[in-house]
Structure formats: C-alpha cells, structure tokens
C-alpha cells in the first residue's frame, strides 16, 4: 500500500505538489477577494517570495523553515509599503496598479545579475515535501474557516457587500483591507518559495500577468463565498491540463472555456454555499 502510494507520489510529484501550492495561491486570492478587492498582485508577491526563498537557500544556505518565514515576510512588507497608496483605489484601478507591480518586478529581475537576470535561478535544492506543503495548506485553510465564522468573517462580508454601511457599523474598513492585502501577500510569497523548492528553477517571466490571471481564475472557478472554493478551483485547474493531455495544445482552450461557463452559469463559483457567521 505504502509502496504504491510512493510510486504515485514519485510519478506525479510535481503535479501533486503543484496542487498544494496553487491551492495556497487560491487562498491568497481569497484573502483579498472576500473583501471585494480585486488585486492582481498575487503573482508579483509570489515572485518576491520565490526569489527571497531561492536566494536565501542558494547563497546563505539557511534552514528551510527560516527560508519559508522570510519568503512570507518580505512580500508582506512589500504589501505594507504599496498598500498605503493603493488602498484608496478599488475595483479596476487597484487591479491595474497591482498588475503594474508585477511588470516592474519582472523587469527588475531580468536586469539584476545577482538574481539570475533573464536566465533565472536554477539548481534550487528540493526541500519542499508533501508533508510541508499540505500541512501548511491545512493550517491556512483551517485559519480561514475559523476566521470566516467569527466577527471577522462578518466584517469581511459586510465590507464586500456594502463598504459605506460597514463603515458606519463601526468596522475599520481600511485596516481590514490592509490586513487582507498583507496576509494575501504573505501566502503568495510562501507558495512561491514552496514552489521554487520543488521545481528547482525560477525565472523572471513566471510571475507576470499570465500567472496573476491564472491565480485569479482559481478563485473565480471555485467561488469565494467560502475558503474551500479557491482550493477546489486550484485543484481543478491544476489537474485539468494533465487529464487533458491527449488534446495537446487545445488543453488551454478547455481552461478558458470552463471559466467562461462558470462565470455565466455559476457566478458564485462551483462552491457557492455560505458558512454561517454566528460563531457562538
């Protein structure tokens, strides 16, 4: 039994690990979307985490837990810095500003030799394990579920439904938005570092616009009414290309098609149920 499981893990290792890290990315998207904030900076934050983690491992050989902590904290700090000026933005404006961040960083990576330049960083040791990735995913998911059942979950939903009403209800909307952005950046950075430590290579183009859109699509497909949605969305969209391998280049068409169908027929995502927010 264990042997077959090991076999499975070995043959599909990068796919299975990818399910886990993409689910964490889906949750990082959930952190902001549940407040109605459309940030497309997730890929950029993921990139910051991936580069931070890879450089700390390659150049300094720091222990992996420390590397992961730094990979979460550096993008969180970046979010704190860019959060101030962008917090006044909402909707499309915030989305565009955060896309800009990704592009700026991409160009910065390409032109910084210490970060591998256009060639990226390779030879990153494989330190991510099944237990680390899925253990972290479980802890993060549990945290979101617990939070969504408390007064914090109510405040978040109130902000998404009607910001002005939430404000006069005594909810500090700006603090919530800033916290959500920082948490989402930390999670994206964590996922980036986990990913770098099993794919063994990262490059500047991996964290650009396309990645941002695919992270968003995890959340849209699964729905953001509960934290389960983005996780399921990430699982489906990560596994699908493998299942559709016989269709070769048409695989990506299926991804796009599924998203279009979900947006039209299931605007709340495939998991559209709500969690009761009466936490007693």
């Amino acid at each position: 039994m264990m042997a077959t499981l090991d076999d499975l893990l070995w043959s599909y290792q990068s796919l299975i690990y990818g399910l886990g890290t993409n689910a964490i990315l889906g949750l990082s998207m959930y952190a902001v979307l549940q407040l109605g904030q459309l940030s497309l900076g997730q890929a950029a934050f993921m990139g910051i985490g991936a580069y931070t983690g890879a450089l700390l491992t390659l150049r300094l050989g720091l222990p992996f837990p420390l590397v992961l902590a730094a990979a979460a904290m550096v993008p969180a700090l970046a979010a704190l810095v860019i959060g101030g000026p962008t917090m006044k933005l909402s909707g499309v404006h915030l989305a565009i500003a955060t896309i800009g961040l990704g592009e700026v960083l991409r160009v910065a990576y390409i032109n910084t030799d210490a970060m591998g330049g256009a060639l990226g960083l390779s030879g990153i040791p494989e330190k991510s394990t099944f237990a680390i990735i899925f253990g972290l995913l479980a802890v993060i998911l549990a945290g979101f579920i617990l939070a969504s059942r408390s007064k914090i979950g109510r405040a978040c939903e109130a902000i998404r439904e009607d910001e002005a009403a939430a404000r006069v209800m005594g909810i500090d909307v700006s603090a919530y938005k800033m916290t959500a952005l920082v948490i989402s950046a930390a999670l994206a950075g964590l996922a980036g570092a986990l990913n770098a430590h099993f794919s063994s290579f990262i490059g500047p183009n991996e964290f650009a616009f396309e990645a941002a859109v695919s992270i968003l699509s995890f959340a849209i497909l699964g729905g953001v009414t509960t934290p389960f949605g983005p996780v399921l969305g990430a699982f489906v969209l990560t596994a699908l290309p493998e299942l559709l391998r016989p269709f070769h280049d048409f695989r990506l068409v299926f991804n796009g098609l599924i998203i279009v169908l979900v947006v039209i027929f299931l605007p709340r995502g495939i998991l559209g149920f709500r969690i009761r927010r009466t936490g007693g």
Binding site: R154, E157, A165, R277, T278
Partner: peptide, 26 residues
C-alpha cells in the same frame, strides 16, 4: 447586507461592541 441572514446583519452592527481580541475570536 443582503446575502447575510437577518441575525448576522444585527451581529455585524454589534461589531464595535465585541471586544474580544481577534486571535481569540478566530
């Protein structure tokens, strides 16, 4: 807040009076 239940709406109104620190609430 249309998607919330009636009860949750009232609990949301209570937000500034719920004093327990957020980690404890979570």
């Amino acid at each position: 807040f249309g998607e919330m239940t009636v009860l949750e709406n009232v609990l949301t109104g209570m937000h500034p009076r719920l004093g327990v620190a957020w980690p404890l609430a979570v």
